[in-house]
Write a protein that binds this DNA or RNA. Structure first.
Lengths: 218, 218
DNA sequence: TAATTATATAGATCTATGTCAAATGTTGCT
DNA sequence: AGCAACATTTGACATAGATCTATATAATTA
């Protein structure tokens, strides 16, 4: 589910903006209710975003890898709508929203670029609605693995050997499953020789079978 | 889940654009794969959008009422990502995307306006992720009713008496439930005197209880 | 290194919701 | 009106995944 920018575009932005900032694992980049002023491109590490509803129920709404852009949910308002926290030590490029117009002068395609990123975010969220609404546990887990694999390979990393940046808890929360079900699903996929799992290290042995399972419905 | 425009803004747009067009119930406004050129504001009636995945599984991604704007998922590409069909005889205002820049000259806030609408679409979709991931059948149905009620009252219609524009099938598809479960849930809410149901006519007797049930998790 | 705490796996039940089947109601068509 | 096609409701039963419990493994701290 790619909502990435070109690395060279991020680099250009970063040179102009000069506001890269490192975040430690578990540290919040911002929280729901904080004043909205910027969107962020991940430069290294990984980030999760999550909602908290009135009753305190949390829902992870996305995982963001290097090159991916987050924070679009704040634009309609003065404050952010979700919480953003680093899954590991990470760096981000901050893009102050009120400088977007000046920046557009230096990178003319920027405005259109942002519209496109938001559009892809919407598409990706809709794909996720289908995943949660129609797929069973195997389908959901396989879909996440497949998505991560694609995104790793776009970054010229191996699509076969992944280190998951998030805990089983996070995976379960994101996919609407309990950690037990996530764990059992990993075990089953391993027994069927589709993947090898060792904690957060995952090797995908059979992409074709994995993609079939992505479409398993309940 | 409000991603509406001001009626007077739509009217201004409509005057400029002059491309209102009526659609019959069941008729498609466009389909996934059609060339993207416009976004649309609903003027009357109601509209649903849905995805179809490789296996032919359908997922309704949203219901759109008068004043609400759809089509933002096409902006990153030359073609549309989803299907759009009228739930009843409806009219829409077509906003050609390539005229947006000229239009921005006549309605200066338009660009920002669109960013805000897209941002709200993202927020609304994230809220829906939480609904599908964390709520049980009662919570999902109550959340939909509550959302419709809010959106009706924004249009100066009664928040208590609704005519649902969509079938039980559509509701089930949207909420990740079978029609049987949807039907049983309506019956249960009626037995508890929270709503009265007669086919597609719904009266909300107790908004407070309904909102409590919105947060029922599984 | 041991002690402590978090994280992950695994087994045994329970339950909400799916599946199947049938009855009833609604809508459009001739 | 009468029929056909479709939509909704209701009941009986099956099951995927939740819950509860226990254990094992990894990470963190003393």
């Amino acid at each position: 589910m790619p909502l990435a920018m070109d690395v060279k575009d991020i680099d250009r932005l970063d040179k102009i903006i000069q506001r890269g900032r490192p975040i430690q694992s578990g540290e919040h980049l911002y929280r729901a209710g904080d004043v909205f002023s910027s969107i962020y491109a991940v430069r290294s590490g990984s980030i999760k975003t999550y909602l908290v509803d009135d009753e305190g129920v949390e829902q992870i709404t996305g995982f963001y890898l290097p090159g991916e852009v987050l924070g679009f949910d704040g634009i309609d308002n003065t404050d952010h709508g979700c919480n953003v926290v680093a899954l590991e030590t990470s760096t981000v490029c901050e893009i102050p929203f009120n400088r977007l117009e000046e920046l557009t002068l230096q990178i003319p395609t920027l405005q259109r670029h942002f519209s496109q990123l938001m559009s892809r975010q919407i598409k990706s969220d809709h794909q996720m609605l289908l995943t949660l609404s129609k797929k069973n546990a195997e389908g959901r887990v396989a879909t996440l693995l497949s998505s991560l694999s694609h995104r790793y390979s776009r970054r010229k990393l191996s699509p076969n050997a992944l280190r998951l940046p998030m805990s089983r808890m996070d995976i379960g929360n994101f996919l609407g499953l309990t950690i037990e079900t996530v764990s059992r699903t990993f075990s089953r996929l391993q027994k069927e020789n589709i993947i090898d799992v060792d904690g957060r290290e995952v090797v995908i042995n059979n992409h074709d079978r994995l993609n079939e399972i992505c479409h398993k419905n309940r």
